[in-house]
Structures are given as C-alpha cells and as structure tokens.
Design a protein around this nucleic acid. Sequence first.
DNA 1: TAAAAATACTCCATAGGTATTTTAT
DNA 2: ATAAAATACCTATGGAGTATTTTTA
Lengths: 269, 269
Amino acid sequence: MDLDLRKLRYFVAVADHRHFGRAAEQLYITQPVLSRQVSAFEQELECTLLVRTTRSVELTAAGKQLYEEAQGILAAVAAAVRRVHDVDHSVQRLVVAFSPGLHVSEAIRAFALRHPQVETDVVPARWWEPDAPLRDGRAQVGYLRRPFDDSGMHVIPIGHEPRVACVPAAHALACRGELTSADLAGERMLDTPTRRTSSLEEKFELIASGHGVALVPLSVARSYSRPDLVHLPVTDAPGIETCLVVLADRREKLLRDFQEIATATLRCG
Amino acid sequence: MDLDLRKLRYFVAVADHRHFGRAAEQLYITQPVLSRQVSAFEQELECTLLVRTTRSVELTAAGKQLYEEAQGILAAVAAAVRRVHDVDHSVQRLVVAFSPGLHVSEAIRAFALRHPQVETDVVPARWWEPDAPLRDGRAQVGYLRRPFDDSGMHVIPIGHEPRVACVPAAHALACRGELTSADLAGERMLDTPTRRTSSLEEKFELIASGHGVALVPLSVARSYSRPDLVHLPVTDAPGIETCLVVLADRREKLLRDFQEIATATLRCG
DNA sequence: TAAAAATACTCCATAGGTATTTTAT
DNA sequence: ATAAAATACCTATGGAGTATTTTTA
C-alpha cells in the first residue's frame, strides 16, 4: 500500500547504472539482494519497470515515468525531513541553489556576517531545470542563469555574461581570436536541451572527442577548462542573464535580506 | 535513513485524532502497535514529535512541521504512483480539482463525450489552499473559487457568485429578506482563514450552535443547507470569482481542450 | 479510579547475507 | 565461455498481535 522509499532508491540506482552489480556496489549491498528487492518492488507496484537481459538493463515506459517522479519525491522528502530537524533544533537555514559556474560563496559570506545565527548551505542546480530546487523545497533562493521557468518566481536580474564557443584545441577555429555566429554555421552544436547530460563534464568530453562544439556561458567554460579545449568569444551572441530568484509567495525577511546583500555583492563582483 | 511512509501515515493519523486508540482503529491496527511504531518513528527521526499524557496528545513544534509536510508528501507520492500506472496501462487521465460547492460534473460529461479514451476524475480542493491539488500533482485542472495563489497559473475567469450570510434559524436577522454588511457589524464572523476547519460541516455546526455567523459563497450555503440555518443575500458584498485554472507550464492539448469545453459549459450552466 | 498510553512477550514476514544456478551473448 | 541476473537457503531485524502494567487527570 505505501510506497517503500528504500526500494524506490534501489530502483533509481539500477536505473542510473543500467546494471545491477554496479548499482548494488554503490548502495553497499550485494547484487542478489538488489535483484530481489527490485523484483519485489515491481510486484508491489504491480508494474514492470525494467527489461533485463544478461547484457543490458532497460527501462520500460512505466519505469521511465517512475524514474522521473522519483527524483522529485526523494529530494522533496529529504528536504522536508531537514526542515523538521531545523524546527526541532530551532535552526534558521538558508539554502541557495546555483547554476553551474556561478559562484555564490562571496554573497553567502557577506550574508553570514550579518546573520551569524542562520545556517547556510548551497545546492547545485541542473542546467535543464535550474528552478527545480526552489520548487521542490531543497532551496529557498537561487542564483540562476536563464532560461528557466520563472512563473511564480520573484526575479532580480544581476548581470549578463558573454557566451563563448567551446571547441577542441585541434579545431580549425581554435587559433582564431574571436568568432561570430557565422563562423559556427557549419558546426554540429551540442547545446540542444533535449539531451540531458547529467554533467557538464560529459558535454565537454563530447566536444574534446570531436562530436561537436557548444556555445556556453563564459563562467561555465572557465570552470571546466581543460588543455584539449579552447573557448573563444562570439562577438554577436547575445549575453546570458543571471538572476537572484525566490518563490513569489515566500515573504520571509531572511530571504529579502539575502536578496539585498547578494544583489550588492554579486553586482560588484 | 529512508523515511518510512507507513510510519509517516501512522503519525499523521495520531496527529489527526490526537488519540492513539482512535487513530489505531482508523488504521485497522491495534493501539500498542501504533504506539510502538510512532515511538520507533521518532527514534528514527531522532526527534520528538508528540507530547503524550494519559489525557492528551499534543504536537511539538517539530511535530507540527512534519504534519504540514506530510500532507503534501503523501499526496504527491500517491499521485506519482498513479501516473506510473497510467503510463503502464497507456491511460490518459484528467483530474479536476473543485472548490467546495462548485459542480464540475456537467463539464466533465461534455469533455468525456469528445474524449472517450480519457479517464476523468475529480478531487476536492480545501478552501484554505484551493491550488494545492494542482501544485502537488493530484490534479491537472481546477475549477476553483478565489482567493488562491495564482502565481504560475493560467487562469480563465468563469463567473461571479454572490456572497450570502449564513445565520442560525433562530437568529434575529433570520427573518429578514436581505442584508447589508452594516447589519452584520455586531456579529462574530467565522470566516477568518486562520482556523482551518477541516470540513465546512464543522463551520456550519459552529454557526448553528450560536458561535457566530459567516459570509459564504451562495453555492456553499446551498450545498450544506440544513433546517437550523438560513442564508440571506448580502446586497453590498462583492461577488466571488470562480475560475478554471491550470499550471502555466502545462501545455498539453488535453488541458486546452478541457478548458475550452468547460468554459462553454460552465458559463452557460 | 478509570481512561489511555506504554511495556512484555510471541509469531511471522522480510531485508540482508553467501553460495549457486540460469541465461543470453 | 563468460558476464550478469536470478534463485536457494540461512539469519536477524522489525511489524503486528494479545496480555498486562504504568501513569495522571
């Protein structure tokens, strides 16, 4: 009757790895246990989630749906439990979500000086859904890069950062000082938001191995710089806006204070 | 490590009843089992949720926080599991949330004629958070009465309904044909959204027993009519808007279709 | 003193482990 | 032939039951 969150977590691990053995290892249990638990989970749900062969593990349609749902459920439950603990210990906590490459530590330090009693924390936002940590309760404020779904959000623009083209060091364009969009016309672009690479490392790996090039925000290119890649300014690409974001219905003074302090800090820095 | 949703449900039952015995009865388990399970739950959370004496059960601050969180968690999990089953059985489903007293059956029948393959369902919205079923995923569309939090919502106004004063049949005002706000100036009003009576029955029970009077939408007064209460039009009270509501980021054709059909049906009816 | 929660105990289901078998490439 | 998932079997924890004790208003 009740969904078993442990088994859900086990299922997610298998879905992540597409491999029972490695998933079991990550979960610190043995493979047969994981195998049985996931089977039992499918029986409890009365629903096949995985198609197994000895060479591959694939998700069914229902499995894909559950995998999507599971991310939000597990994150929301963990955040809820932490809020309960915070209330129990009378802790005030402020969690800041940040888009890849953006740095909030300076703003948080400034905030912590004025509010030493408030516990602060950060959580990374994923590029294809930067607003998710705010919506599922993991964070109260976000320092996010557009685009994102800003419905129901109170947004303070902070700044613009230029887009740069990221290409292999061996690429014909790599020796150019700067580019225009026209220079990239013939290249295969890897920016499409359809492929949800779980990490930007993967994207840069693809670029380095010659699968294409990408237009990325400058701060992202800087954060993941590596010797076999170069990034070049694209003079006519529009800048990308970065913003401070809170849910519009949240009115706590703490959030307003953070927005104020962070706006000052981030606009200067 | 993982939150046990069964124990969470047990805790919610105890919090609802403020009584282990009656909660156990509702859960179809025995009182000692419930007592032990809730204790174990508190140990797992490392956090006291309830203050028990033999005469009363009260929530701690952490308990109150968890109780609030639990509502959303359990609803969201149940909705997610149903979506998984829907995908598994290739079912298209449309769930409509409705404010107390509003009737969606006509619109749903009209919709079902055009979309016989779509399973339809309804879920009641609670007056102090009419938008909750949409936000936690239990429903995709709402036929809701204002006020509610419409951030991130796409709202189509449907109509206005008059407010009526609901007073005991024995009350001095009960014989009047209609009232103005001035007539209610000396009365104790029960509309404050601070008291979250779980059912409107309770509110009307309070009115009937002489604890005050209330201004309610006409349809609500009609739905809960009883011999010891009368409702009277208040000529100068502003009408209350009813709306069709969907989350702004949902773009499915099915939702657009429902909005279209329901708008026509509800505006006429 | 009586109502209600907690405790003591028993039983069984199930999570976890190790050893082994099955299966598809 | 081999890698990987499934199965067999064992142990221990924990959920649920009944009977009883403790507690406080």
